[in-house]
Design a protein around this nucleic acid. Structure first.
Lengths: 196, 196
DNA sequence: TGACAACGAGACGCAACCGTATCGGTAGGC
DNA sequence: GCCTACCGATACGGTTGCGTCTCGTTGTCA
Protein backbone atom coordinates (compact mmCIF):
# COMPACT_ATOMS: atom_id res chain seq x y z
CA UNK A 1 0.00 0.00 0.00
CA UNK A 2 1.77 3.09 -1.23
CA UNK A 3 -0.92 5.35 0.18
CA UNK A 4 0.59 8.46 1.69
CA UNK A 5 -1.06 10.92 4.00
CA UNK A 6 -3.48 12.45 1.57
CA UNK A 7 -4.45 16.05 1.21
CA UNK A 8 -8.18 16.52 1.32
CA UNK A 9 -9.17 16.20 -2.29
CA UNK A 10 -11.87 17.18 -4.68
CA UNK A 11 -14.76 18.78 -2.96
CA UNK A 12 -12.65 19.17 0.13
CA UNK A 13 -10.39 21.64 -1.53
CA UNK A 14 -13.30 23.69 -2.73
CA UNK A 15 -14.80 23.87 0.72
CA UNK A 16 -11.47 24.80 2.18
CA UNK A 17 -10.92 27.63 -0.23
CA UNK A 18 -14.44 28.93 0.20
CA UNK A 19 -14.03 28.98 3.96
CA UNK A 20 -10.72 30.84 3.80
CA UNK A 21 -12.28 33.52 1.63
CA UNK A 22 -15.31 33.79 3.84
CA UNK A 23 -13.07 34.14 6.88
CA UNK A 24 -11.48 37.28 5.48
CA UNK A 25 -14.81 38.68 4.43
CA UNK A 26 -16.14 38.27 7.93
CA UNK A 27 -13.00 39.74 9.44
CA UNK A 28 -13.11 42.79 7.21
CA UNK A 29 -16.80 43.33 7.80
CA UNK A 30 -17.07 42.79 11.54
CA UNK A 31 -13.53 42.64 12.89
CA UNK A 32 -12.46 40.22 15.56
CA UNK A 33 -15.62 40.69 17.62
CA UNK A 34 -17.65 39.16 14.80
CA UNK A 35 -15.13 36.52 13.85
CA UNK A 36 -16.56 33.19 14.96
CA UNK A 37 -16.58 29.72 13.52
CA UNK A 38 -20.32 30.02 13.34
CA UNK A 39 -20.36 33.25 11.32
CA UNK A 40 -17.61 32.11 8.96
CA UNK A 41 -19.40 28.83 8.32
CA UNK A 42 -22.60 30.71 7.66
CA UNK A 43 -20.99 33.04 5.14
CA UNK A 44 -19.11 30.22 3.44
CA UNK A 45 -22.25 28.13 3.17
CA UNK A 46 -20.36 25.42 5.01
CA UNK A 47 -21.05 23.27 7.98
CA UNK A 48 -19.43 24.03 11.29
CA UNK A 49 -18.25 20.45 11.32
CA UNK A 50 -16.26 21.17 8.17
CA UNK A 51 -14.51 24.09 9.82
CA UNK A 52 -13.58 22.06 12.88
CA UNK A 53 -12.41 19.26 10.63
CA UNK A 54 -9.78 21.59 9.12
CA UNK A 55 -8.98 24.05 11.87
CA UNK A 56 -8.94 23.42 15.57
CA UNK A 57 -9.66 27.01 16.52
CA UNK A 58 -10.62 30.41 15.07
CA UNK A 59 -7.00 31.43 15.51
CA UNK A 60 -5.73 28.56 13.36
CA UNK A 61 -8.27 29.40 10.70
CA UNK A 62 -7.26 33.02 10.73
CA UNK A 63 -3.59 32.15 10.36
CA UNK A 64 -4.34 30.10 7.25
CA UNK A 65 -6.66 32.72 5.81
CA UNK A 66 -4.23 35.60 6.20
CA UNK A 67 -1.36 33.55 4.89
CA UNK A 68 -3.33 32.55 1.80
CA UNK A 69 -4.40 36.10 1.12
CA UNK A 70 -0.90 37.56 1.17
CA UNK A 71 0.21 39.08 -2.12
CA UNK A 72 3.77 40.39 -2.36
CA UNK A 73 4.47 43.75 -3.87
CA UNK A 74 5.57 43.46 -7.48
CA UNK A 75 9.27 43.11 -8.16
CA UNK A 76 10.57 46.11 -10.04
CA UNK A 77 14.16 46.91 -10.77
CA UNK A 78 14.83 49.35 -13.55
CA UNK A 79 18.06 50.47 -11.92
CA UNK A 80 16.52 53.85 -11.16
CA UNK A 81 16.21 53.74 -7.38
CA UNK A 82 13.89 56.70 -7.01
CA UNK A 83 11.52 55.58 -9.76
CA UNK A 84 11.41 52.02 -8.47
CA UNK A 85 10.69 53.10 -4.91
CA UNK A 86 7.91 55.40 -6.09
CA UNK A 87 6.40 52.57 -8.10
CA UNK A 88 6.39 50.19 -5.15
CA UNK A 89 5.05 52.71 -2.67
CA UNK A 90 2.37 53.82 -5.09
CA UNK A 91 1.18 50.24 -5.40
CA UNK A 92 1.27 49.96 -1.65
CA UNK A 93 -0.63 53.19 -1.08
CA UNK A 94 -3.23 52.06 -3.54
CA UNK A 95 -3.73 48.78 -1.67
CA UNK A 96 -4.11 50.76 1.52
CA UNK A 97 -6.77 52.93 -0.09
CA UNK A 98 -8.74 50.04 -1.50
CA UNK A 99 -11.37 48.74 0.78
CA UNK A 100 -10.66 45.43 2.46
CA UNK A 101 -6.94 45.54 3.05
CA UNK A 102 -6.58 48.28 5.67
CA UNK A 103 -9.58 47.06 7.62
CA UNK A 104 -8.09 43.59 7.56
CA UNK A 105 -4.77 44.99 8.72
CA UNK A 106 -6.41 46.73 11.67
CA UNK A 107 -8.27 43.63 12.77
CA UNK A 108 -5.24 41.42 12.30
CA UNK A 109 -2.93 43.82 14.12
CA UNK A 110 -5.25 43.78 17.11
CA UNK A 111 -5.55 40.02 17.07
CA UNK A 112 -1.77 39.67 16.75
CA UNK A 113 -1.32 41.54 20.02
CA UNK A 114 -3.03 38.78 21.94
CA UNK A 115 -2.30 35.59 20.01
CA UNK A 116 1.33 34.54 19.59
CA UNK A 117 0.66 32.47 16.47
CA UNK A 118 -0.98 35.43 14.80
CA UNK A 119 1.79 37.70 16.03
CA UNK A 120 4.45 35.53 14.44
CA UNK A 121 2.58 35.41 11.17
CA UNK A 122 2.04 39.16 11.25
CA UNK A 123 5.75 39.73 11.65
CA UNK A 124 6.52 37.25 8.88
CA UNK A 125 4.07 38.76 6.39
CA UNK A 126 5.44 42.20 7.16
CA UNK A 127 8.95 40.95 6.54
CA UNK A 128 7.89 39.58 3.17
CA UNK A 129 6.18 42.83 2.28
CA UNK A 130 9.36 44.75 3.05
CA UNK A 131 11.58 42.54 0.97
CA UNK A 132 11.30 44.26 -2.42
CA UNK A 133 12.08 47.64 -0.86
CA UNK A 134 14.98 46.19 1.04
CA UNK A 135 16.41 44.60 -2.09
CA UNK A 136 16.30 47.87 -4.01
CA UNK A 137 18.14 49.64 -1.21
CA UNK A 138 20.71 46.89 -0.86
CA UNK A 139 21.50 47.10 -4.56
CA UNK A 140 21.80 50.87 -4.36
CA UNK A 141 24.27 50.48 -1.51
CA UNK A 142 26.15 47.96 -3.63
CA UNK A 143 26.33 50.46 -6.46
CA UNK A 144 27.65 53.07 -4.04
CA UNK A 145 24.69 55.37 -4.50
CA UNK A 146 23.96 55.75 -0.80
CA UNK A 147 25.98 57.15 2.07
CA UNK A 148 28.14 54.55 3.73
CA UNK A 149 26.48 54.13 7.12
CA UNK A 150 22.94 53.88 5.75
CA UNK A 151 20.76 51.45 7.74
CA UNK A 152 18.51 49.86 5.09
CA UNK A 153 16.05 48.53 7.66
CA UNK A 154 15.50 51.97 9.13
CA UNK A 155 15.13 53.48 5.69
CA UNK A 156 12.46 50.92 4.83
CA UNK A 157 10.68 51.83 8.07
CA UNK A 158 10.68 55.48 7.08
CA UNK A 159 9.43 54.67 3.59
CA UNK A 160 6.65 52.28 4.49
CA UNK A 161 5.45 53.39 7.90
CA UNK A 162 3.86 56.72 6.92
CA UNK A 163 1.33 54.98 4.70
CA UNK A 164 0.09 52.68 7.44
CA UNK A 165 0.09 55.59 9.82
CA UNK A 166 -1.93 57.95 7.67
CA UNK A 167 -4.55 55.40 6.88
CA UNK A 168 -4.91 53.48 10.13
CA UNK A 169 -3.83 55.88 12.85
CA UNK A 170 -4.30 59.43 11.64
CA UNK A 171 -7.28 58.69 9.41
CA UNK A 172 -6.02 61.25 6.94
CA UNK A 173 -6.08 61.22 3.19
CA UNK A 174 -3.17 60.03 1.12
CA UNK A 175 -2.59 62.44 -1.75
CA UNK A 176 -1.45 60.92 -5.02
CA UNK A 177 1.94 62.58 -4.72
CA UNK A 178 2.63 61.23 -1.27
CA UNK A 179 4.79 58.30 -2.42
CA UNK A 180 7.01 60.63 -4.42
CA UNK A 181 7.19 63.13 -1.55
CA UNK A 182 8.16 60.43 0.95
CA UNK A 183 10.78 58.94 -1.36
CA UNK A 184 12.29 62.32 -2.13
CA UNK A 185 12.44 63.32 1.49
CA UNK A 186 14.09 60.07 2.53
CA UNK A 187 16.45 59.81 -0.39
CA UNK A 188 17.58 63.39 0.12
CA UNK A 189 19.31 62.30 3.28
CA UNK A 190 20.77 58.95 2.23
CA UNK A 191 21.64 59.43 -1.42
CA UNK A 192 25.07 60.68 -2.34
CA UNK A 193 25.37 63.70 -4.55
CA UNK A 194 21.83 64.97 -4.08
CA UNK A 195 21.63 68.73 -4.16
CA UNK A 196 19.75 70.25 -1.26
CA UNK B 1 -33.41 78.01 43.37
CA UNK B 2 -30.02 78.49 41.79
CA UNK B 3 -29.65 74.78 41.19
CA UNK B 4 -27.93 74.05 37.91
CA UNK B 5 -27.78 70.80 36.02
CA UNK B 6 -25.68 68.83 38.39
CA UNK B 7 -22.75 66.61 37.62
CA UNK B 8 -23.07 63.21 39.19
CA UNK B 9 -21.56 63.85 42.58
CA UNK B 10 -19.79 62.09 45.37
CA UNK B 11 -19.94 58.39 44.94
CA UNK B 12 -21.07 58.84 41.37
CA UNK B 13 -17.77 60.31 40.37
CA UNK B 14 -15.87 57.50 41.98
CA UNK B 15 -17.90 54.87 40.19
CA UNK B 16 -17.50 56.69 36.92
CA UNK B 17 -13.76 56.90 37.24
CA UNK B 18 -13.46 53.29 38.30
CA UNK B 19 -15.48 52.17 35.32
CA UNK B 20 -13.39 54.20 32.86
CA UNK B 21 -10.23 52.64 34.22
CA UNK B 22 -11.70 49.17 34.15
CA UNK B 23 -12.80 49.69 30.55
CA UNK B 24 -9.21 50.27 29.45
CA UNK B 25 -7.97 47.33 31.49
CA UNK B 26 -10.48 45.06 29.81
CA UNK B 27 -9.64 46.44 26.40
CA UNK B 28 -5.92 45.96 26.88
CA UNK B 29 -6.37 42.47 28.27
CA UNK B 30 -8.93 41.04 25.89
CA UNK B 31 -9.28 43.48 23.03
CA UNK B 32 -12.58 44.33 21.42
CA UNK B 33 -13.79 40.71 21.46
CA UNK B 34 -13.81 40.77 25.25
CA UNK B 35 -15.05 44.32 25.63
CA UNK B 36 -18.59 44.10 26.92
CA UNK B 37 -20.64 46.08 29.37
CA UNK B 38 -20.83 42.95 31.43
CA UNK B 39 -17.09 42.35 31.64
CA UNK B 40 -16.27 46.00 32.33
CA UNK B 41 -18.85 46.14 35.12
CA UNK B 42 -17.43 42.98 36.58
CA UNK B 43 -13.89 44.29 36.60
CA UNK B 44 -14.94 47.67 37.97
CA UNK B 45 -16.97 46.04 40.71
CA UNK B 46 -19.91 48.02 39.44
CA UNK B 47 -23.46 47.21 38.55
CA UNK B 48 -24.45 46.95 34.93
CA UNK B 49 -27.20 49.43 35.73
CA UNK B 50 -24.53 51.98 36.63
CA UNK B 51 -22.85 51.56 33.27
CA UNK B 52 -26.06 52.00 31.35
CA UNK B 53 -26.89 55.03 33.51
CA UNK B 54 -23.77 56.76 32.20
CA UNK B 55 -23.23 55.32 28.76
CA UNK B 56 -25.78 54.18 26.27
CA UNK B 57 -23.49 51.71 24.50
CA UNK B 58 -20.07 50.07 24.70
CA UNK B 59 -18.95 52.46 21.99
CA UNK B 60 -19.90 55.54 24.03
CA UNK B 61 -18.10 54.13 27.04
CA UNK B 62 -15.01 53.44 24.99
CA UNK B 63 -14.96 56.97 23.62
CA UNK B 64 -15.02 58.42 27.14
CA UNK B 65 -12.43 55.98 28.40
CA UNK B 66 -9.94 56.64 25.61
CA UNK B 67 -10.46 60.37 25.84
CA UNK B 68 -9.86 60.35 29.60
CA UNK B 69 -6.72 58.29 29.26
CA UNK B 70 -5.06 60.56 26.72
CA UNK B 71 -1.85 62.14 27.94
CA UNK B 72 -0.17 64.65 25.65
CA UNK B 73 3.53 64.45 25.05
CA UNK B 74 5.45 66.90 27.25
CA UNK B 75 6.03 70.35 25.88
CA UNK B 76 9.72 70.91 25.34
CA UNK B 77 11.31 73.86 23.61
CA UNK B 78 14.92 74.49 24.32
CA UNK B 79 15.44 76.07 20.94
CA UNK B 80 17.57 73.10 19.87
CA UNK B 81 15.37 71.40 17.28
CA UNK B 82 17.24 68.12 17.12
CA UNK B 83 17.49 67.73 20.88
CA UNK B 84 13.82 68.56 21.40
CA UNK B 85 12.66 66.13 18.73
CA UNK B 86 14.79 63.37 20.20
CA UNK B 87 13.35 64.09 23.64
CA UNK B 88 9.76 63.89 22.41
CA UNK B 89 10.27 60.78 20.33
CA UNK B 90 12.14 59.06 23.13
CA UNK B 91 9.19 59.68 25.43
CA UNK B 92 6.91 58.37 22.73
CA UNK B 93 8.98 55.27 22.05
CA UNK B 94 9.02 54.57 25.75
CA UNK B 95 5.21 54.76 25.94
CA UNK B 96 5.05 52.37 23.02
CA UNK B 97 7.34 49.95 24.80
CA UNK B 98 5.45 50.04 28.07
CA UNK B 99 2.73 47.51 28.32
CA UNK B 100 -0.81 48.77 28.00
CA UNK B 101 -0.50 51.57 25.49
CA UNK B 102 0.37 49.73 22.28
CA UNK B 103 -2.14 46.99 22.98
CA UNK B 104 -4.75 49.66 23.57
CA UNK B 105 -3.77 51.36 20.34
CA UNK B 106 -4.19 48.14 18.38
CA UNK B 107 -7.62 47.44 19.81
CA UNK B 108 -8.72 51.02 19.38
CA UNK B 109 -7.43 51.21 15.82
CA UNK B 110 -9.45 48.18 14.90
CA UNK B 111 -12.58 49.47 16.58
CA UNK B 112 -12.13 52.85 14.90
CA UNK B 113 -12.33 51.17 11.51
CA UNK B 114 -15.90 50.14 12.13
CA UNK B 115 -17.35 52.79 14.44
CA UNK B 116 -17.45 56.38 13.17
CA UNK B 117 -17.54 57.90 16.67
CA UNK B 118 -14.40 55.98 17.59
CA UNK B 119 -12.82 56.86 14.26
CA UNK B 120 -13.34 60.57 14.84
CA UNK B 121 -11.90 60.36 18.32
CA UNK B 122 -8.94 58.35 17.06
CA UNK B 123 -8.16 61.02 14.50
CA UNK B 124 -8.56 63.76 17.10
CA UNK B 125 -6.32 62.11 19.67
CA UNK B 126 -3.70 61.53 16.99
CA UNK B 127 -3.88 65.18 16.03
CA UNK B 128 -3.30 66.19 19.64
CA UNK B 129 -0.39 63.80 19.95
CA UNK B 130 1.23 65.32 16.87
CA UNK B 131 0.87 68.88 18.07
CA UNK B 132 4.11 69.27 20.05
CA UNK B 133 6.14 67.92 17.13
CA UNK B 134 4.33 70.16 14.71
CA UNK B 135 4.95 73.21 16.88
CA UNK B 136 8.67 72.55 17.05
CA UNK B 137 8.86 72.24 13.30
CA UNK B 138 6.79 75.36 12.71
CA UNK B 139 9.11 77.36 14.93
CA UNK B 140 12.15 76.00 13.14
CA UNK B 141 10.62 77.04 9.82
CA UNK B 142 9.99 80.47 11.36
CA UNK B 143 13.61 80.71 12.36
CA UNK B 144 14.62 79.79 8.83
CA UNK B 145 16.34 76.58 9.88
CA UNK B 146 14.52 74.35 7.40
CA UNK B 147 14.37 74.33 3.64
CA UNK B 148 11.64 76.52 2.25
CA UNK B 149 9.22 73.98 0.83
CA UNK B 150 9.24 71.70 3.86
CA UNK B 151 5.83 70.12 4.53
CA UNK B 152 5.64 69.95 8.34
CA UNK B 153 2.76 67.46 8.33
CA UNK B 154 4.71 65.02 6.18
CA UNK B 155 7.79 65.46 8.33
CA UNK B 156 5.76 64.65 11.44
CA UNK B 157 4.48 61.54 9.66
CA UNK B 158 8.02 60.43 8.96
CA UNK B 159 9.09 61.11 12.53
CA UNK B 160 6.21 59.45 14.33
CA UNK B 161 5.08 56.66 12.04
CA UNK B 162 8.13 54.38 12.31
CA UNK B 163 7.55 53.86 16.02
CA UNK B 164 3.98 52.72 15.60
CA UNK B 165 5.07 50.60 12.69
CA UNK B 166 7.89 48.81 14.45
CA UNK B 167 5.84 48.00 17.49
CA UNK B 168 2.42 47.21 16.03
CA UNK B 169 3.07 46.05 12.48
CA UNK B 170 6.58 44.69 12.24
CA UNK B 171 6.74 43.41 15.83
CA UNK B 172 10.40 44.37 15.94
CA UNK B 173 12.44 45.82 18.75
CA UNK B 174 13.02 49.54 19.13
CA UNK B 175 16.66 50.14 19.99
CA UNK B 176 17.37 52.98 22.38
CA UNK B 177 19.07 54.98 19.65
CA UNK B 178 16.17 54.74 17.25
CA UNK B 179 14.70 58.16 18.09
CA UNK B 180 18.05 59.83 17.42
CA UNK B 181 18.55 57.84 14.22
CA UNK B 182 15.12 58.76 12.89
CA UNK B 183 15.52 62.42 13.76
CA UNK B 184 18.95 62.59 12.18
CA UNK B 185 17.78 60.88 9.03
CA UNK B 186 14.80 63.17 8.61
CA UNK B 187 16.54 66.37 9.59
CA UNK B 188 19.36 65.63 7.18
CA UNK B 189 16.99 66.28 4.33
CA UNK B 190 15.02 69.24 5.63
CA UNK B 191 17.55 71.21 7.65
CA UNK B 192 19.58 73.87 5.97
CA UNK B 193 23.33 73.76 6.23
CA UNK B 194 23.59 70.15 7.37
CA UNK B 195 26.72 68.48 6.12
CA UNK B 196 26.11 65.16 4.46
C1' DT C 1 -29.44 63.86 61.37
C1' DG C 2 -32.54 63.18 57.83
C1' DA C 3 -33.53 62.75 52.92
C1' DC C 4 -32.26 61.33 48.68
C1' DA C 5 -29.63 60.34 44.70
C1' DA C 6 -26.55 57.17 43.12
C1' DC C 7 -25.03 52.83 43.95
C1' DG C 8 -24.12 47.20 44.01
C1' DA C 9 -26.24 43.07 43.49
C1' DG C 10 -28.51 40.15 40.84
C1' DA C 11 -32.78 38.11 38.39
C1' DC C 12 -35.13 38.15 33.98
C1' DG C 13 -36.04 36.34 29.03
C1' DC C 14 -33.69 36.52 24.80
C1' DA C 15 -30.14 35.69 21.45
C1' DA C 16 -25.61 34.17 19.90
C1' DC C 17 -21.74 31.16 19.86
C1' DC C 18 -19.55 27.25 21.68
C1' DG C 19 -17.87 22.32 20.40
C1' DT C 20 -19.77 17.85 19.45
C1' DA C 21 -22.63 14.39 17.30
C1' DT C 22 -25.48 12.35 13.86
C1' DC C 23 -27.60 12.28 9.76
C1' DG C 24 -28.43 11.53 4.50
C1' DG C 25 -26.42 13.32 0.16
C1' DT C 26 -22.95 13.80 -3.33
C1' DA C 27 -18.79 14.22 -6.00
C1' DG C 28 -14.57 11.85 -7.64
C1' DG C 29 -11.39 7.98 -7.95
C1' DC C 30 -11.18 3.23 -9.31
C1' DG D 1 -21.25 2.64 -12.03
C1' DC D 2 -19.99 1.43 -7.51
C1' DC D 3 -17.65 3.08 -3.05
C1' DT D 4 -16.23 5.99 0.09
C1' DA D 5 -14.41 10.06 1.98
C1' DC D 6 -15.99 14.42 2.47
C1' DC D 7 -19.63 17.28 2.75
C1' DG D 8 -24.09 20.40 4.41
C1' DA D 9 -27.61 20.50 7.51
C1' DT D 10 -29.23 20.37 11.83
C1' DA D 11 -29.88 19.41 16.82
C1' DC D 12 -27.85 19.47 21.36
C1' DG D 13 -26.86 21.41 26.19
C1' DG D 14 -23.93 24.81 28.09
C1' DT D 15 -22.14 29.42 28.44
C1' DT D 16 -21.98 34.33 27.83
C1' DG D 17 -23.62 38.90 26.88
C1' DC D 18 -27.65 41.64 26.08
C1' DG D 19 -30.73 45.50 28.08
C1' DT D 20 -34.09 46.18 31.69
C1' DC D 21 -35.79 45.81 36.14
C1' DT D 22 -36.19 45.74 41.21
C1' DC D 23 -34.40 45.65 45.30
C1' DG D 24 -31.76 47.10 49.73
C1' DT D 25 -27.66 49.95 50.84
C1' DT D 26 -24.55 53.86 51.34
C1' DG D 27 -22.36 58.14 50.88
C1' DT D 28 -23.14 63.09 50.88
C1' DC D 29 -25.07 67.56 51.45
C1' DA D 30 -28.34 70.59 53.66
Amino acid sequence: MTEVAREPLGRGKHARRRVLEAALEVLAADGMPGFSMESVARRAGASKATLYRHWSSPSALLVDAMDAQFRPLPEVDTGDLRADLVTLLTAFASALSGSPFPTLMAAFTDAAERDPALGDLHAELTRRRREPLLRLLAEAVERGELVGDTDPELVVDLLAAPFFYRRLIAHQEMPADMPAAVVDLVLASVRLGTPR
